[in-house]
Nucleic acid binder design. Structure first.
Length: 268
DNA sequence: CGCACCCCCTGCCGGC
DNA sequence: TGCCGGCAGGGGGTGC
């Protein structure tokens, strides 16, 4: 489910939890992608949430005492704020807060991660590059990063060490907006094409955040709200349908084991 | 070293 | 109607 715009939307929806104290920690199912540590509940209980940050697709809950709760939603995870503890199916971890509400991780596929650590000291964050919307990432730097790379540009865009937060939906969409085929070897893109891609990347991600992300099947923010960006998708999951711009049938191919969608006329 | 492939897991959808 | 295969927003390990 969640790529940068969805994770950012979840982060913003959870910001009212800053200042809340975690009173009760219930781990109902520790077998996520990484098994939740045995001392998780003991370490987390009694902590206050001081800030909620995002690195790529990871959320970092800054707690008092220098502790950090790292969260990743995988493909199907949701962090939901609820007034009562429902104990719904796939509610794997339930945190009761001092305002009597609950923060629940629901994740049917269990590809998510919840992990405690200190500061930024997580091995998961070692390969997380700069945020594509930050000032660190410029068209010039993106161009430099593509040189001598034979990997298809779409796969490079999804490389979390290069740019953090771009997944399959948004990689497809920004390549469509930029008019670049997902299969193009990254190093073969011209300066002008990289410039277009850089601008498309920013526009697509900003627009998606504005619309609360994409709800393809069951994505929800912390308040259970859906996003609306899926209504504006131009190519993702539109195989066999006409291209918005020229009417040519959108194609689906598989790259690195994941579906790519493109218009062979509008994208070269 | 760079890259493609496979797998983790559950749910859903289309085809037979 | 029901079963089965294929596919799904992520990412890490393996092996070529």
């Amino acid at each position: 489910m969640p790529e940068l715009p969805e994770v950012e939307t979840v982060r913003r929806s959870l910001l009212p939890l800053v200042g809340r104290r975690i009173e009760v920690v219930e781990v109902r199912e520790p077998r996520l992608r990484l098994r939740i540590a045995a001392d998780f509940a003991v370490r987390l209980r009694g902590r206050s949430i001081e800030a909620i940050e995002r690195r790529g697709k990871y959320l970092l809950f800054r707690l008092d005492g220098g502790l950090t709760l790292l969260a990743h939603l995988g493909m199907s995870g949701a962090l939901l704020v609820q007034p009562t503890r429902t104990g719904a199916v796939h509610d794997h971890v339930c945190l009761q807060l001092d305002d009597a509400r609950f923060l629940v991780l629901n994740d049917p596929r269990r590809f998510g991660i919840l992990k405690l650590g200190r500061g930024e000291d997580f091995r998961e964050l070692r390969n997380v590059g700069p945020d594509p919307l930050s000032e660190q990432v410029t068209a010039e730097r993106l161009y430099a990063a593509t040189r001598r790379r034979k990997k298809p540009i779409k796969n490079l865009l999804m490389d979390q060490g290069l740019l953090a937060g771009i997944g399959n939906i948004y990689a497809n969409e920004m390549l469509y907006v930029a008019g670049v085929r997902p299969t193009r070897p990254a190093g073969r893109l011209s300066r002008a094409e990289v410039q277009r891609l850089y601008e498309a990347m920013r526009a697509v991600l900003q627009d998606a955040i504005q619309l609360g992300g994409s709800s393809i099947s069951d994505y929800r923010d912390g308040d259970g709200r859906t996003g609306y960006f899926q209504l504006t998708l131009k190519v993702y999951d539109r195989a066999g349908q006409p291209c918005d711009r020229c009417g040519t049938t959108v194609r689906r191919i598989v790259q690195a084991g994941r579906s790519s969608f493109y218009c062979r006329v509008c994208q070269r």
